[in-house]
Design a protein around this nucleic acid. Structure first.
Lengths: 225, 225
DNA sequence: CGGTTAATTTGAACATGTTCAAGTTAGAGC
DNA sequence: GCTCTAACTTGAACATGTTCAAATTAACCG
């Protein structure tokens, strides 16, 4: 069940070559059309060897996700160090997600369903995927905290997690998007990120105070439970 | 790909007995632990015969969903004909969802992931599952329209679909819920349904008018696109 | 009843994710 | 350099979803 870490130079090489072959094939043929045998073949190792390093096909997807996350983080680094406006930071960040993932659009559907499975080790709400999720949430923490927006403390606390969830929603929309250049998704991102920033601003209104406390309290209790 | 409808008395019987065996086994052992061979065995037919009536194992799940939907609709009928308060109607309806689904809690996880797969015929956002989805949305239409709440027309138009989506979120939460008697989910339902009704009421405030128009416009354009 | 056709049924065959016991390799300790 | 152990590698075997061509059944027509 646990991911085997190579203890040897040879092991490291094998693991790397298997992973690389898997990433290539996932992009070429999609997740389901890529067989474990094809991965082993292209990596030049035996079928059993693949399973020595990756307990299941799903675990290879987890690495795939980490890979795209790193691409994404690198892509938005300049924006985050230059820009101070929250709406712009958020829009740029989420746009970068779908741009980064674009090469994998065809694969994304089946991967998403694998990830959504609560009993999968990849499920982002628990288990093996926790470190990666924490990284992504932390990234949205930077988006929020590096901006010049003045955000109430109780909102600022929950916002990164909320944005991570929001990003998953966008990705799910994007998977279905058949518009040329995925323009539809980009439009939705522009509109929703702007709306989010607007609503965060409105949350200080006296009439909304009660509901805001309740929403945040509920979210907090869910996260902690 | 299309679901084969039996053209014969014998065919109807076979289809029914296969489906019944599948529903039983899903409950007994869960979705993944139930093999097509086991279903065929219990139904007293051959493996190939099962595939004559259900193009895939997933299609059997679709029937499973229809089954629970009918249980649910029956369970809330008295409430809907008696009660006029929107919050009460909504709370009762969503509570009834998780109560109805409780016997299938162990199965729900893998089913959910199957359903979430965009390329699955079961995906509620398109294809084979559309009739069932329409039924559920229609049911939330009754919940809203049968209440004495005065709701602006633009909100009333999108509310049933939104509530259907909300129900899916609750079900996903419920899947993870390990609390005794699934009390945690019931608490969340009580809190969120109340919040929803509250926020619908607040949406008429002048300060929220702009955001409300934008949110509804966005939702509408997504649904139509 | 005999024949013809469509529906139904069957089980073998296939593809693929996964397991595992046995074989091979490499490096540490002497 | 030899030995021993842990790491690594292998390929056969297994389980299960799915396909398919052939066999069987039922029903309708004359």
């Amino acid at each position: 069940m646990a991911i085997e870490a190579p203890k040897t130079k040879r092991g490291e090489t094998s693991r790397a070559v298997i992973l690389s072959a898997a990433l290539d094939l996932f992009q070429e043929r999609g997740y389901e059309a890529t067989t474990m045998r094809a991965i082993a073949d292209r990596a030049g190792v035996s079928l059993g060897s693949s399973y020595h390093y990756f307990p299941s096909k799903e675990h290879l997807v987890l690495e795939f996700y980490r890979h795209t996350h790193e691409l994404h983080a690198a892509a938005i680094a300049p924006l985050l160090s230059r820009e101070k406006d929250l709406a712009t930071r958020l829009r740029g960040t989420v746009r970068a997600v779908v741009v980064t993932c674009e090469p994998f659009h065809a694969v994304a559907g089946s991967i998403f369903s694998t990830v959504a499975n609560p009993s999968s080790p990849l499920n982002p709400f628990g288990g093996a995927a926790k470190p990666l999720r924490d990284d992504v949430v932390e990234l949205y923490g930077q988006v929020v905290n590096g901006s010049d927006a003045r955000i109430p403390a109780d909102i600022a606390e929950m916002l990164p997690l909320t944005l991570w969830l929001y990003q998953m929603g966008i990705l799910y929309f994007w998977i279905f998007d058949r518009s040329p250049g995925r323009l539809r998704t980009l439009e939705v991102i522009d509109e929703t990120t702007d709306l989010i920033v607007r609503l965060v601003g409105l949350a200080n209104l006296p009439v909304l105070r009660g509901s805001r406390k309740r929403v945040l309290g509920l979210m907090k209790s869910i996260v902690e439970g």
